[in-house]
Design a protein around this nucleic acid. Structure first.
Length: 277
DNA sequence: TCTGCATGAAAAA
DNA sequence: TTTTCCTGCAGAG
């Protein structure tokens, strides 16, 4: 599920497998041929994630006359998975390319395939700056400032449920973390941002940092506390309080979980635990 | 095996 | 507001 934790996990894995190595790039599908040609033969200097965006910083290629500058100004690959995008990965030898394979990256040891992404493009450092400037703080980045998000939230009449999904307010949170975070703090999804107290917001942020870091480690979103879920294996269903549990009893109070379309996305909540103030 | 739904965001209309 | 990207999963049968 590509919420922020997925992208940070991918960045970490790709850094491990391809960082500081010369990378071969191709676009068997043909939709990214020109971009792949730009990257082919360069060294991956750094892979990082910002919210749901993945960035690869590549080396300058002096063999074609690119001169080192004060800035580390090699080409940058920008990927946004969107709803369907997916990376597959493995050790060499790589499988025969099949289907709509937008981008394949490989080195002597590993390969990784990108399909279905919303964005897969070469960008400049200036474009990266613009991208980051339009994103709110990302709980998975150390330098992130929760006050920057609160400045937006505390001024807004928009519902907290909508604000949490707005990448300009907060980067990396998607529909699952949104629903689960609201439940964990017993917050009415429809309450306006300006009614959220600063102390509560800071607690929510801190919780998000913990939950999302665990998500990076495990590769999945688990928000239920052990005491609130049935014993045994933590299946996907058991890992959430409200997400995709419409009509089922709340794990805390037993009330039927409700769902409603909000800004084009399904919102899940417990009308009792998260009753309006 | 088939069908519907799903994590997101940008472009098109 | 609708369409696009076009994958993978779960549940039904």
């Amino acid at each position: 599920m590509p919420e922020g934790h997925t992208l940070h996990r991918l960045a970490r894995d790709q850094q491990r497998r391809f960082g500081s190595t010369v990378v071969h790039a191709s676009s068997p599908q043909g939709r990214f041929t020109a971009g792949a040609q730009v990257l082919d033969g360069r060294t991956l200097l750094r892979a990082e994630a910002y919210g749901k965006h993945l960035l690869h910083h590549y080396s300058l290629d002096e063999s074609i006359g690119e001169a080192p500058t004060a800035e580390p100004g090699g080409p940058i690959l920008h990927v946004h998975l969107g709803l369907y995008g997916k990376f597959a990965a493995g050790s060499q030898p790589a499988p025969e390319p099949r289907g709509a394979l937008r981008l394949r990256l490989s080195n002597d040891e590993f390969w990784t395939d990108l399909r279905g992404a919303t964005a897969c493009e070469i960008v400049t450092p200036d474009q990266v700056d613009l991208l980051i400037a339009r994103l709110g703080p990302d709980p998975l980045r150390r330098s992130a400032d929760p006050a920057r998000a609160f400045a937006r939230i505390s001024r807004s009449r928009v519902s907290i449920a909508a604000l949490l999904m707005d990448q300009a307010v907060l980067a990396g949170v998607g529909n699952v973390y949104r629903a689960e975070l609201l439940f964990r703090h017993r917050l009415d999804p429809m309450c306006p941002g300006k009614s959220v107290a600063e102390q509560l917001w800071l607690e929510m942020w801190s919780d998000l940092v913990t939950l999302m870091r665990a998500g990076v480690r495990s590769g999945r979103i688990v928000t239920t506390r052990p005491e609130d879920r049935p014993a045994g294996r933590v299946t996907r269903e058991r890992s959430h309080y409200v997400y995709r549990r419409t009509g089922q009893p709340c794990r805390v109070c037993g009330t039927a979980i409700r769902t409603q379309l909000l800004v084009g996305r399904n919102l899940f909540w417990c009308p009792s635990c998260q009753a309006p103030a």
